[in-house]
Design a protein around this nucleic acid. Structure first.
Lengths: 242, 242
DNA sequence: CGAATACTTGAGTGGGGTCAACGCAAGTGG
DNA sequence: CCACTTGCGTTGACCCCACTCAAGTATTCG
């Protein structure tokens, strides 16, 4: 799974792919809403999401929670722990999830032996940074409507890159309350804005299934430019649907 | 300047420090509000701020601008361009500024010869990411009052780490409009909240000079925890002033 | 089938936006 | 040296997006 991700980030040679595939990994299954990594923890291994969704978050006074990012299979949501200690946020599962833990030591060794892999790992953390920048712009400048539209565009595109979109439909296990925690909105308002998006025939969202009904109009409402995701291989050329 | 920064991030040996100091650099002076790097540009060199302030930004429809980060002397605000192309945002000067441009090639060569420096560079980009996370939490969860307090805490702490604070006072060249662009607030509201902060005797801010009058109370209002800045060497143990 | 969780809807409120002046200081040119 | 300009800071009036509180309705799960 990690090999697949890194291969998407930078072309991998046979030796390199093999080395990634042979990394020692401890597999562990987590229940929903369970911490994979705690805030302030000092890690000695990295998590690679095999199955299920996860999210990073920060807790503030008064029980408020800001979700910092969502993660889908293939992501390595605490890769920064290789060089940044301790954790400045928590990492938890959204759904039941399967996680592979790879020792830091093995990753450092890998980076030493294969400079191209070191680059791919670094680049992976830089893409996280690019996504953070997009979220800052979203939170600072967009209306609730634009925020939701933008997040839906981003997640759909990332799921597509991970091969998890069929047609224009994907699983979407994020509750409205969690969307609010990510977008700085109340669950009540998220609900109302989702209804607007549905009323405009931009999306359909029910029972953990999301469909983009009109990609072009949704992207326009979101002012969405996928360049920041730095996806090297766009899966298929997108026909202007809608 | 870069050697000083990297030295603060990871301990440098003599050879390493010398290698950094001998990097080829082209010095250039920029006027205020001038682009150092344009959005979408593909870079072949990195900028290192020697003197003056800069900021990263994204432009949105309707002339709205989100400032993504502020940068002070010693920062390398486009280091991510080493492995992420093209730029997904712009980089501009806030004040007149002196910038040293270092070719990517030289930095790649440096990273190849000195793994510790490769780590320090990577770590530098990871700290940028940590700061983005803090901003996301600020924009998503804090009131205007808390946002301003948090940003002032962060900048003061970073300036202190750069040796640019005397007493509790530092230069502060950011206009109220720019603060608004960074915090997702209007310049009018920034003005009102700054007056509140002054009325509470937390800060003094006039004529491009900022003083923290009560660090402890300001940090409390901001819910500020400096851990995310990952400053290895806190300058002096802070006496609980205020 | 009962309990918990998520979603939905309505009413009322407030934080922060917009618009519009005005003050003030630093240039700048005649 | 002074009239003019320009950019930033300040203040007031009004308004709306999104929050809170509260109740009620699906869904999901044990």
């Amino acid at each position: 799974m990690l090999a697949r991700r890194l291969g998407a980030i930078a072309p991998l040679g046979g030796d390199e792919r093999r080395a990634v595939e042979q990394l020692p990994a401890r597999i562990q299954v987590f229940e929903p809403q369970q911490d994979i990594v705690h805030d302030r923890e000092i890690l000695t291994r990295c998590a690679v999401l095999q199955e299920g969704w996860a999210f990073r978050y920060k807790l503030l006074d008064g029980g408020r929670r800001q979700i910092l990012s969502f993660h889908v299979p293939g992501d390595a949501p605490d890769l920064q722990s290789l060089h940044l200690r301790p954790m400045d946020h928590g990492l938890a599962t959204l759904t039941r999830a399967t996680v592979a833990f790879v020792p830091h030591e093995s990753l450092h060794d890998l980076a030493r032996r294969f400079p191209a892999l070191a680059t791919a790992l670094w680049r992976n953390t830089l893409i996280d940074g690019a996504i953070y920048r997009a979220w800052i712009a979203t939170l600072g400048q967009r209306s609730a409507y634009g925020r939701l539209a933008h997040l839906l565009c981003e997640l759909h595109r990332r799921l597509e890159a991970a091969g998890l979109v069929a047609g224009q439909t994907c699983t979407f296990p994020i509750t409205q309350g969690e969307l609010g925690n990510a977008l700085g909105l109340s669950n009540v308002h998220v609900n109302r804005v989702l209804q607007e998006l549905r009323a405009h025939d931009l999306i359909s969202l029910q029972g953990r299934k999301l469909s983009i009904l009109s990609w072009s109009r949704l992207a326009k409402a979101a002012e969405f430019d996928p360049a920041y995701l730095h996806l090297t291989a766009p899966p298929e050329p997108r026909i202007g649907a809608g």
